[in-house]
C-alpha cells in the first residue's frame, strides 16, 4: 500500500496556476506586439494620409507629395500576376484534387508545390531576373515583375483550391455521375460552383501577399522614382513596398521623408487588414453555406 504525499495535489495546483498564467501572459504578449505594430503605424500614418497623399506624385526628392504612382504600380502588378497565376493555380488545384490518383505523380506535384512555396522571395527575384528580364529579354518591366510574383503566389492558390475542392462532399459528385454527367462537366457545373467562394478566398489572400512583396520585384519591375505613370507592360513601375523601402533607407533626406514612409506603411497595412477581413468574411459565408446543405 503506498501513500501519496499530502501536499502533492496542492503543489500541482499552484504549479498549474503559475504556468497557465505564464502561458497566458506570453500569448497575450504576442498579440500585444501585433497591436503595437498596428497602432504605431496607424497613429503615425493617419496624420499623413489624405486624398492628396493618395492621388499625387511624389515631390521634392520624394520627401513630400503623395504616392499615387506607387499605388498604381502595385495595382498593375497585382492585376498582372493574378491574371497569370489564378487560372493556372485553380487548374492545378483541380488536377491535384480531382484527377491525380494517389500515387507518385500526385506526390511529386505536392512536393514540388511545397518546395516552390518554401523558396525565399529573393530567390524568386534572382530567377525572375535571369529568366524574364535577361533570357526572355523583357527587361525590368511590369510584365517581368508580374510573372515573377505570379510564380510566387501559385502555391497558395493551388493549395486553397485543393482544400476547397476537398471540402466538397463526394455525394455531389456521385449524384452528378449518376445522372450520366462526365467528370469535366461535373467539376464545372457542380463542384466548382460550391467550392468557388473558398477559391476566391485564396485569390484574395494571394493579392495580399503579392501587394506586400518587395524582394521579387527589386530587379524585375520596381523603379526608384518615375515621374509619369507606366505606359505599357514593358515599362518599369513604382510599387508600394519598394517605395517604403526606398524612402525609409536611402532617400535624399531620411528625416524629411519619415512622414511619407509612415503613410506608405499605413496603406500597406490597410491592404493587409482589408484582405484578411474579406477572406474571413468569405470563409464564414462559405462555412454557413456548406452547413445549410
Amino acid at each position: 500500500m503506498i501513500t501519496f504525499p499530502e501536499n502533492a495535489d496542492l503543489k500541482k495546483k499552484w504549479t498549474q496556476i503559475v504556468f497557465f498564467w505564464t502561458a497566458r501572459i506570453l500569448s497575450f504578449g504576442v498579440i500585444l506586439v501585433l497591436i503595437t505594430i498596428l497602432y504605431f503605424i496607424t497613429s503615425k500614418g493617419f496624420e499623413v494620409i489624405s486624398w492628396d497623399f493618395l492621388t499625387e506624385n511624389p515631390k521634392d526628392g520624394m520627401n513630400a507629395g503623395g504616392i499615387f504612382p506607387a499605388i498604381i504600380g502595385t495595382l498593375y502588378l497585382i492585376i498582372g500576376s493574378m491574371i497569370i497565376a489564378f487560372p493556372i493555380g485553380v487548374l492545378a488545384g483541380i488536377y491535384v484534387n480531382e484527377y491525380a490518383r494517389n500515387g507518385i505523380a500526385k506526390r511529386i506535384i505536392q512536393i514540388m508545390t511545397n518546395n516552390l512555396s518554401g523558396i525565399p522571395s529573393i530567390v524568386f527575384g534572382l530567377f525572375g531576373m535571369a529568366l524574364f528580364v535577361n533570357y526572355l529579354n523583357f527587361g525590368a518591366s511590369i510584365i517581368a515583375g508580374s510573372l515573377t510574383l505570379a510564380l510566387l503566389s501559385l502555391p497558395l492558390i493551388i493549395r486553397t483550391t485543393e482544400e476547397s475542392l476537398k471540402a466538397v462532399d463526394n455525394t455531389f459528385r456521385h449524384a452528378s455521375y449518376g445522372l450520366g454527367a462526365s467528370k469535366l462537366y461535373t467539376i464545372r457545373k457542380v463542384v466548382l460552383p460550391i467550392a468557388f467562394p473558398n477559391i476566391i478566398t485564396g485569390l484574395i489572400l494571394s493579392i495580399g501577399r503579392v501587394s506586400g512583396e518587395t524582394a521579387p520585384i527589386l530587379f524585375t519591375a520596381a523603379a526608384y522614382f518615375l515621374p509619369r505613370l507606366p505606359q505599357s507592360l514593358t515599362d518599369q513601375c513604382m510599387a508600394l513596398p519598394y517605395h517604403l523601402y526606398v524612402i525609409s533607407t536611402s532617400g535624399t533626406d531620411l528625416d524629411k521623408a519619415r512622414p511619407m514612409a509612415y503613410g506608405t506603411a499605413l496603406v500597406l497595412v490597410m491592404i493587409v487588414l482589408l484582405v484578411n477581413g474579406l477572406a474571413g468574411l468569405l470563409r464564414n459565408y462559405f462555412a454557413r453555406k456548406v452547413k445549410m446543405k
Binding site: 503506498i2 501519496f4 504525499p5 501536499n7
Partner: peptide, 16 residues
C-alpha cells in the same frame, strides 16, 4: 501516475 502525484522515491517506484 506515481511521479505526477508527488512520489520520488526511486526504490518505491521500481517496486510498484
Amino acid at each position: 501516475g506515481l511521479r505526477v502525484n508527488g512520489i520520488n522515491d526511486s526504490q518505491l517506484i521500481a517496486n510498484q
